[in-house]
Computed example of a mutant assay.
Amino acid sequence: MIKIYSITVTTILLAVVSLISCSSEETSEKKQENLSTSPATANYAITPVDLRYVKLTDDFWLPVVKRVQEETIPYAIKKCEEEGRLHNFLIASGEMEGSVKGKMPFDDTDVYKIIEGASMTLISAPNPELEKELDRIITIIGKGQEDDGYLTTWRTINPKKPPAPWVNVVEGKRWESLTASHELYNAGHLYEAAYAHYKATGKTNFLNIAYKNADLIVKTFGDNEGQIAAVPGHQIIETGLIKLYALSGKEEYLKMARYFLDNRGRSEHHKLNDSYLSAAYSQDHLPVIEQDEVLGHAVRAMYMYAAMTDIAVLMKDADYENAVDKLWQNMVEKKIYLTGGLGARHEGEAFGDNYEL
């Protein structure tokens, strides 16, 4: 029996709050019917609450959500403007001149995460002005996407000059140095945000950008002639692809997520750890189904374990189920704080040894 499920913290929080105070326009039977039709949830013993059906109406959480809309989200967007996050998409499109703004190869994801969080607030607190602002930002993102679907602005602007010195440059082209380039990490957060935006608004403008990029990923990576055999340096594209599969039913997205997992820890298929990361730090030291101790960068690890759980359930894979059970036991028995916190070491945001807290 699988003991962990891929449910976001936000989903859990809103599910708990909904037991206290929520309203819905549909009956519980109708809700269950809608939830069970999703290919990515139908096989779960425990079905995540669909955020569309959790609407806060109380005097505690709803004012918090509205305050986030009024203060936090505008401030976050303002900082993205000041730091050049949005400018990068316009520079990539050719609409604006200049060099890459920012110092990290994953700066694009700041914009995606704002859209994801802002979208979730719209479910309980409809806000036409905020929705319009998100549409404005999504239009800017779309301008930065290349014709074939590629979307990592710093690579488009100047592929031979990454914003961070620890991103290795060989020929200065797409997909090289995946250990550090964060191209696939950027894609994963794009998918997660597009999923949330669609769920909250029903609009497909952001989702279509994500689908276009995901189709390029499916075409680019694999073991067939002309494809690249590689895995992400930083996991999250796996869960993002599974969310797109949940919406579209496209098996290619689910299979791509599994490909990235199956080939982790198999150095003959890729050269992931070619710069500053150790294999264990990025969970690349063993094939995922052979891993039984939670190791390395805690953020990378939890994204990966969530995706492994999805694969175990959706593809009814006993090897994946056995692996996530062992990883779960190691984590909750030897490496978790009473608060639920994970990652004992400040350096590297990493797990420590067993019982190191």
Score class of each variant (00 low, 15 high):
A257W: 00
G149F: 09
Y150G: 04
L247N: 05
V170T: 05
E176V: 02
K103F: 06
P63L: 08
I237L: 13
D325A: 13
K79D: 05
S181G: 14
E81G: 02
V17H: 14
P39R: 05
A42V: 08
L178Q: 09
E349V: 04
P232E: 06
F351D: 03
L247D: 03
S93V: 06
E26P: 00
D135H: 09
L62M: 15
T239Q: 08
E129L: 11
S177L: 01
N158T: 10
R258C: 03
K243T: 04
W61L: 14
L241V: 08
R85K: 12
I311W: 02
E293H: 06
E349R: 03
V169Y: 01
P287I: 14
L327G: 03
A164K: 05
A306P: 02
V313E: 09
V299I: 15
V294I: 12
D310C: 06
M96L: 10
I46R: 04
E349S: 03
L13C: 12
L295V: 12
T57L: 05
E268H: 07
T8G: 12
G222A: 06
F89Y: 07
M302V: 08
S278E: 13
E146W: 00
A323P: 00
R266I: 12
V65Q: 12
Y303W: 06
D274Q: 07
A40H: 07
D50V: 15
E71S: 07
W175D: 08
I140A: 06
G352N: 10
E129I: 10
E356S: 08
K212C: 15
G188P: 00
E171V: 00
A214L: 07
Q329S: 13
L272D: 02
H189Y: 13
P159Y: 03
I242Q: 02
E146S: 09
N354P: 03
G265M: 08
T156P: 00
N354W: 09
N127C: 15
G343E: 04
Y276L: 04
F351V: 12
E321T: 10
D107Y: 09
E25M: 08
A350H: 01
M302S: 11
E116D: 13
K66P: 14
L244D: 02
S124E: 11
P63A: 11
M256Y: 01
E251D: 13
H87R: 14
N168P: 03
I242L: 09
A180P: 00
V65N: 13
E252W: 03
S248P: 14
